[in-house]
């Protein structure tokens, strides 16, 4: 498995290939389609992330010292975004995640180019991941 830095660099590189937002959306939609669905019983109120127009669930658990994330959403682009976050951050130590600045999201233009509700959704997703890291960090 690549390191967190390598993974983020790879995502940034992928996004540099895209000419416009349609391409980025296509990419996110495909990520969304490939994401393993969260089992129905895990789509609970306490896993729901607030601040999104669509529903987004995030499940975090510790496995052998690493944080493992699983996520889902009823909207595809949001599903792609959360899938991207899962790809980058799942399987890392909580200390590593807690120390990360999530700056690559700005580099790939995800933050400023999404509608306000969506941007809030992204902020909520990021803070949920951070929170899980803080709670589990030693």
């Amino acid at each position: 498995m690549s390191t967190l830095e390598e993974k983020k660099a790879a995502v940034v590189e992928d996004f540099m290939l895209f000419d416009d937002w349609m391409d980025k959306y296509e990419y996110l939609i495909n990520l969304g389609k490939e994401l393993e669905p969260l089992p129905e019983e895990c789509r609970t109120e306490d896993r729901l992330i607030r601040g999104c127009q669509s529903r987004v669930w995030l499940d975090a658990r510790m496995e052998e010292g690493k944080l493992v994330f699983r996520a889902d959403s009823d909207a595809l682009i949001t599903r792609g975004i959360i899938a991207l976050l899962v790809q980058v951050y799942s399987g890392r130590t909580p200390e590593e995640i807690a120390a990360d600045d999530f700056g690559f999201l700005e580099q790939i233009g995800l933050k400023e180019n999404l509608s306000p509700t969506r941007a809030n959704g992204l902020v909520s997703m990021v803070s949920t991941i951070r929170q899980a890291a803080k709670e589990n960090a030693r």
Partner: peptide, 13 residues
């Protein structure tokens, strides 16, 4: 099969 939020985001573009 298509969420309203996805549709609105793409239409926006």
């Amino acid at each position: 099969g298509a969420h309203h939020e996805d549709l609105a985001l793409i239409l926006d573009k």
